Computed example of a mutant assay.
Amino acid sequence: MNVKSIEKISAGTVARFVLLLVALVNSGLTMTGHSPIPVDETGVQEFISLAFMGATALLAYWKDNDVTKKARTKDN
C-alpha cells in the first residue's frame, strides 16, 4: 500500500468525531447523575427564543425579499 495514496482525514470528519465524543461523555455523566451542563428553565426559554429569532433572521436573509418598487417590478 502506497503511503501517498492515503488521503488525509478532513477537518469536518475530525470535528464530527469530537462532537460525538463530547455528546457521549455528556450522556454518560447525565446517566450517572452528574449535571455537566447546568440549565434552568429560564436558560432553556432564552435559548429557544434566540434560536427562533436566529432561524427567522436567516430565512428572511436567505429568501429574495423584494422590498423596493424597482425590485418588485424587476421580477414581473
Rank of each mutant, 00 (worst) to 15 (best):
M1H: 14
M1G: 15
V3C: 10
V3W: 12
S5A: 13
S5E: 14
I6Y: 01
E7M: 10
E7V: 11
I9Q: 07
I9L: 04
I9F: 01
S10F: 03
S10I: 02
S10P: 07
A11T: 05
A11P: 04
A11K: 09
G12V: 12
G12M: 11
G12W: 10
G12A: 15
T13K: 05
V14D: 02
A15S: 03
A15Q: 06
F17S: 08
L19T: 11
L20C: 01
L21D: 05
L21E: 09
V22P: 00
V22L: 04
A23C: 07
A23G: 00
L24M: 04
L24G: 01
V25R: 00
N26D: 10
N26G: 10
S27A: 15
S27D: 11
S27M: 14
G28A: 05
G28L: 00
L29K: 00
M31L: 15
M31E: 10
T32L: 08
G33T: 05
G33P: 01
H34G: 02
S35M: 12
P36K: 02
I37P: 06
I37G: 05
I37W: 02
I37V: 04
P38D: 02
P38S: 03
V39G: 03
D40G: 03
D40T: 02
T42K: 12
T42Y: 06
G43M: 02
G43S: 00
E46M: 10
F47D: 03
F47T: 06
S49A: 11
S49P: 01
F52E: 15
M53E: 13
A55M: 05
A55R: 05
T56A: 09
T56I: 13
T56G: 02
A57Y: 00
L58N: 08
L59P: 02
Y61L: 09
W62Y: 14
K63D: 11
K63Y: 15
K63V: 15
K63M: 15
D64R: 08
D64E: 09
D64T: 09
D64M: 07
N65H: 13
D66A: 15
D66W: 11
D66M: 14
V67Q: 09
V67C: 10
T68L: 05
K69W: 14
K69V: 14
K70R: 14
K70D: 13
A71V: 06
A71Q: 15
A71E: 15
R72I: 10
R72L: 04
T73C: 05
T73I: 14
K74E: 11
D75A: 14
D75R: 15
N76R: 14
N76L: 14
N76G: 12
